[in-house]
Write a protein that binds this DNA or RNA. Structure first.
Lengths: 140, 140
DNA sequence: AATTACTTTATAATTATTCTAAAGTATGTG
DNA sequence: CACATACTTTAGAATAATTATAAAGTAATT
């Protein structure tokens, strides 16, 4: 019994267009992810912990995974990986790049990197996107 | 009791300089990884399967993980991740880039990509390396 | 209101990886 | 070259992230 006020419409729409019924749990997840000024990065575990901390009735792990996957497949989240066997998600789905600094991730706006030369895609393929990772280390 | 012929010296040296005694198992892993014309990509599971297939006495999982980690820490292997929570290793440790095509990885020589513009590292940090991933999709 | 379809949940299963502890092998010292 | 010490290997247990399962709940359709 979702109270379908216009305030939530945008979050509900993301769910619907991801093929998900806008249940209470899902709407809360969608709001938590997208109802903010700045984009951010998270793991499912982090998302679950920060949302469930404030809740008396916890949302289950499976619901977090299902919802995040559907949102990702629909293009509302972008997945990336570091070298620790964990999936990270980014609410910034526009093409952009990253600094990786010992497990910390910092966005780089797309226009901060431009190419002089790029290879062509192999035959029968085309380029979906180009992502740059700049690994940092301490300056000493 | 390693038979220390000059044929294996290069593989043994990689182990030694990774802080590992050149035991039989390790020398075989080192040879399997580095005794080839072309560099290649692998997961520990793939490495284990392909090496153990031909062996009567199997090398244990832990030995594969230990050896790969030491070689990686010493800089003889490069680690990278796809979106499937598995670590991949690359015997090509020179700076280079990748095509990712549905889980398949293809090397791109470093000189095939050049930059017109790159951001500066945040204060107190410096750039360790820059890696580009070009994601491919089918052309239709 | 009844039927059908989709969700949530707790829990089990799976996968990749790391840990542990016992048994094996090598190295160093005298 | 014997013995003590140190490092290795191994099988199996433990852990972490994720996915699968199946029962109970909720929503949508007739």
């Amino acid at each position: 019994m979702q109270k379908m006020n216009s305030k939530n419409k945008i979050f509900i729409d993301k769910l619907r267009s991801s093929g998900l019924r806008p249940t209470n749990q899902r709407v809360e997840i969608s709001k938590f992810l997208f109802n903010r000024k700045k984009t951010f990065h998270f793991t499912v575990e982090q998302l679950k912990n920060s949302m469930n901390l404030k809740r008396s009735k916890k949302i289950s792990t499976a619901t977090f995974y299902n919802t995040v996957h559907a949102l990702k497949s629909a293009g509302y989240l972008k997945e990336f990986s570091l070298e620790n066997n964990t999936s990270y998600y980014d609410t910034n789905v526009t093409s952009h790049h990253h600094f990786f600094d010992n497990g910390k991730v910092i966005d780089i706006k797309s226009d901060k990197i431009t190419f002089q030369k790029l290879p062509e895609a192999p035959k029968g393929k085309k380029i979906k996107n180009v992502e740059v990772v700049i690994r940092l280390e301490n300056n000493n």
